[in-house]
């Protein structure tokens, strides 16, 4: 059985690192994995996605409409933008966090209201968390990506694997303990 995970967010939020840690972990735990990311123009403050698929044997690195087992949205409107990729019965892990795009900043478009509530109404398996706040509480807002990753790992039922060693191998030593704490906090968000 192949599982498909779609990471969505805004360039600069650390999505690539989060999906890289996940990918490295999945390989370590014996899965075949494919991960796809986009570079270049798309990273200049635009909407970005990475896709991770794992299982016994994976062919396509890409996920189609209605095929994602989990969507991990680092920003609320990005969850809305990519919602059509979520399969029926799939889980949505969404960061209760706003980043205004240029059309919103200059008043050409409006940031919609009550997105989290609407997502929760529509998608039964929605986990909303304030990853940025949690990461700030741990001392560095930049760890919000690993908080999101923790919450995803719990959604996948992979929380009992040895993620500490995966983090150790994939982040600079000085950020190791911060990221381990962030991952635990993310896993813990399902208990609230």
């Amino acid at each position: 059985m192949v599982k498909s995970i779609l990471f969505v967010g805004v360039g600069g939020q650390g999505i690539i690192l989060a999906s890289k840690i996940l990918t490295q972990g999945l390989i370590k735990f014996g899965y075949d994995v494919k991960m796809s990311e986009v570079h270049g123009m798309a990273q200049r403050g635009g909407s970005v996605t990475t896709q991770v698929r794992y299982g016994e044997k994976v062919y396509s690195p890409l996920i189609g409409d209605g095929e994602a087992d989990v969507i991990v949205a680092f920003e609320k409107i990005e969850a809305v933008r990519y919602l059509k990729y979520l399969k029926e019965g799939g889980s949505l892990v969404v960061n209760d966090y706003e980043i205004y795009s240029l059309p919103i900043l200059i008043g050409a478009e409006q940031y919609p209201e009550n997105i989290i509530e609407k997502l929760q109404e529509s998608v039964p398996k929605t986990k909303a968390l304030k990853a940025a706040e949690i990461a700030e509480g741990l001392g560095n807002i930049k760890a919000q990506n690993v908080v999101m990753l923790g919450s995803l790992i719990k959604a996948l039922g992979l929380e009992n694997m040895d993620w500490d060693s995966v983090i150790k191998e994939n982040v600079p030593e000085k950020f190791y303990s911060l990221n381990v704490k962030a991952l635990k906090a993310g896993i813990g968000t399902w208990d609230i």
């Binding site: 209605g66 409107i77 795009s101 919609p112 609407k118 529509s122």
Partner: peptide, 20 residues
């Protein structure tokens, strides 16, 4: 047929790339 998914009655505002 397209696979079943979820829809929201909200239009996501565009997010084009921009000068940093």
């Amino acid at each position: 047929e397209p696979k079943k998914s979820y829809e929201l009655d909200v239009k996501a505002p565009s997010r084009p790339p921009m000068l940093c």
